[in-house]
């Protein structure tokens, strides 16, 4: 046995864990997804009931809602991250680390705590609405009939709240890959472009942006995939107004014990994610960097 092969045994503990906690449940999931749920009894077999249910308009709509919410989240993460990544590349290492810490900080906070904090900020009695009440903005809006008489600015219990709460925590997954891509650009390449007459805008459009695309694609893929699995944030920030596929899946399992349908939905989600990864690979390859 070569030293290299022997080193592979170091993988063993992780491999065993992986088999038990990931591969095995996945197999179970696949088997269950083809089962049938009738009168609270699950029978295995090869039935497409769950998959057919997925394409019912109600559920299909939830799927597309989830899909578009994920797109919004990805889009806003991208818009917010790019300037941060550019800034991180320009400042001194000390400042860079401070920015990095701020970007990662949401990940260091419990998701419940983070969402509760957002409720204190965005809710009807939250800081923003209290301020809007104080300066009279809400009264104006109420008079114009834009918001209802007892409500404040609709900052949560809607898609906006969910997107905001999620963008907040997924930002690092976008900032870091973009920053990595940007750091890989040799500064002399950008200086060259300036030297050849490129204005700041031309420089960004022709050099910086195309060269950062690998990071942009990686970040978007990551954030999109994570967003497709959103559960806690829409539950707290969506206030029953926003429903995502993971919420449906949870409901099916927890309230109705309908494992086959839940499994089929999970498999569909998995397929969407695999498809996203495939598209992402195609895009990465088409980028000439």
């Amino acid at each position: 046995m070569t030293a290299n092969k022997r080193s592979m045994t170091l993988l063993l503990p992780a491999l065993v864990l992986y088999l038990i906690t990931f591969t095995a449940p996945l197999v179970v999931l696949l088997v269950l997804s083809f089962g049938r749920f009738d009168k609270s009894i699950t029978t295995l077999g090869f039935h497409l009931d769950g998959y057919i249910k997925f394409f019912e308009p109600t559920y299909l709509r939830v799927f597309f809602d989830t899909f578009f919410i994920s797109l919004y989240i990805t889009f806003f993460c991208l818009i917010l991250s790019f300037p941060v990544a550019i800034l991180m590349r320009r400042v001194q290492p000390f400042m860079k680390n401070i920015i990095l810490f701020c970007v990662i900080s949401p990940l260091l906070t419990s998701i419940i705590v983070r969402n509760s904090a957002w409720m204190l900020v965005l809710g009807n009695q939250g800081i923003i609405n209290q301020f809007a009440d104080y300066i009279g903005l809400n009264d104006v809006l109420r008079d114009m009939g834009l918001i209802s008489r007892f409500a404040g600015l609709p900052l949560m219990n809607n898609v906006f709240g969910v997107v905001l709460g999620t963008v907040h925590v997924y930002l690092p997954f976008m900032v870091l890959p973009i920053y990595a891509s940007l750091s890989a650009i040799n500064p002399s390449i950008e200086e060259s472009a300036r030297n050849l007459g490129a204005s700041s805008m031309q420089l960004f459009r022709n050099i910086t942006w195309p060269l950062s695309l690998p990071g942009v694609i990686a970040g978007c893929t990551l954030v999109f995939i994570l967003s497709m699995g959103l559960y806690v944030t829409p539950v707290i920030m969506g206030g029953n107004k926003v429903v995502t596929i993971p919420m449906i899946i949870t409901g099916l399992v927890r309230d109705r014990y309908n494992w086959p349908t839940a499994s089929a939905f999970s498999v569909m989600l998995l397929i969407t994610i695999l498809f996203t990864v495939y598209i992402s690979r195609l895009l990465q390859r088409s980028v000439k960097v």
Partner: peptide
């Protein structure tokens, strides 16, 4: 004067070619 307005040719040690073009 801004670098892009100087009309001065510059060749870098690492050539700094645009890798995506």
């Amino acid at each position: 004067v801004l670098p892009e307005k100087r009309s001065i040719g510059l060749v870098f040690q690492n050539y700094a070619l645009f890798p995506h073009m």
